[in-house]
Write a protein that binds this DNA or RNA. Structure first.
Length: 270
DNA sequence: CGAGGGACCTGGTTGC
DNA sequence: TGCAACCAGGTCCCTC
């Protein structure tokens, strides 16, 4: 479900509710996420939220002596509710605030993550080796070009590798490669610097537009207010197998690359 | 170091 | 209608 725009949408939705509030309680109903939720998260109790931010697809809630880190995995979502609202089947964790509001973590597939961290969070094992943020200046065509030399794997896998650049998930990888006219299975090391400039521009463009639309709702993504994202209407190739390409009319193809479905136009992308 | 595959889960859709 | 097979937006970890 959530790629970078969906995580960003969630962050923007929950920030005003959490900022400056004190956490009164952390309720763990089901600790069996991808890694078990440990008692360490109870350290959050009694601490004030000083800031919230996103690194890759991780949400970081900074408190006084550390903070909480949340990843939504494939099917996770966060929403704001009242602390005494009845919890549903997949509502695994609540962060209860002194305002009476509650940040509720729901994740049917339980691929998500909910853990405690101590500063400096950048050195956390899960964050330490991550590549640059795609919307920051350090991510450039030159960077991708240099990083890709000698790599024989598909460019789609390359841009989805978090050590290369973070936040480019399966939907936006297909979309940005279409926009840049690059075939997703092309070897990363055999793409020119000029084409990587176009790819970086496409990645930025698609992510920024998706954030502006509140993310992409394919089946069940909703923001923290329960509303869907509207970017699905703007998808050019993702999920459009056998439908005519908007640019040239050729049937869009679907191909599994790196165990993930990939969509592309065989005429526009080489 | 890079590449590839399995692993972690539930639930919706598809096809017999 | 029932049930099995397949598919899904992520990413870590192990092996080669």
């Amino acid at each position: 479900m959530p790629e970078l725009p969906e995580v960003e949408t969630t962050l923007r939705g929950i920030s005003p509710v959490l900022l400056g509030r004190t956490i009164s309680e952390v309720r763990v109903r089901n600790a069996a996420l991808r890694w078990p939720v440990t008692d360490e998260v109870q350290q959050a109790c009694g601490q004030r939220v000083s800031s919230l931010r996103r690194r890759a697809k991780y949400l970081l809630i900074a408190l006084e002596t550390g903070g909480l880190m949340i990843h939504l995995g494939m099917s996770g979502s966060l929403r704001i509710c009242d602390e005494d609202d009845e919890a549903g089947k997949h509502d695994h964790v609540d962060i209860v605030l002194d305002s009476g509001h509650c940040l509720r973590f729901n994740d049917p597939r339980r691929f998500g993550l909910f853990c405690w961290w101590k500063a400096p969070v950048e050195e956390h094992p899960l964050l330490r080796h991550l590549g640059p943020e795609p919307l920051q200046d350090s991510f450039s065509g030159t960077y991708l070009y240099q990083k890709s030399r000698g790599r024989r794997g598909a460019v789609k896998n390359f841009i989805m590798d978090g050590k290369v650049v973070v936040g480019v998930g399966n939907i936006y990888a297909s979309e940005s490669l279409f926009m840049a006219g690059i075939h997703p299975a092309r070897a990363a090391g055999r793409i020119s610097a000029v084409r990587y400039e176009a790819l970086v521009a496409a990645i930025r463009d698609v992510l920024e537009r998706a954030i502006a639309q509140g993310g992409t709702t394919l089946r069940d993504f909703t923001g923290s207010d329960g509303r869907p994202g509207y970017f699905a209407q703007e998808l050019l190739v993702y999920g459009r197998e056998a439908v005519p390409c908007f640019a040239c009319g050729t049937s869009i193809r679907k191909k599994v690359i790196g165990q993930r479905s990939s969509f592309y136009c065989p005429t526009c992308q080489v």
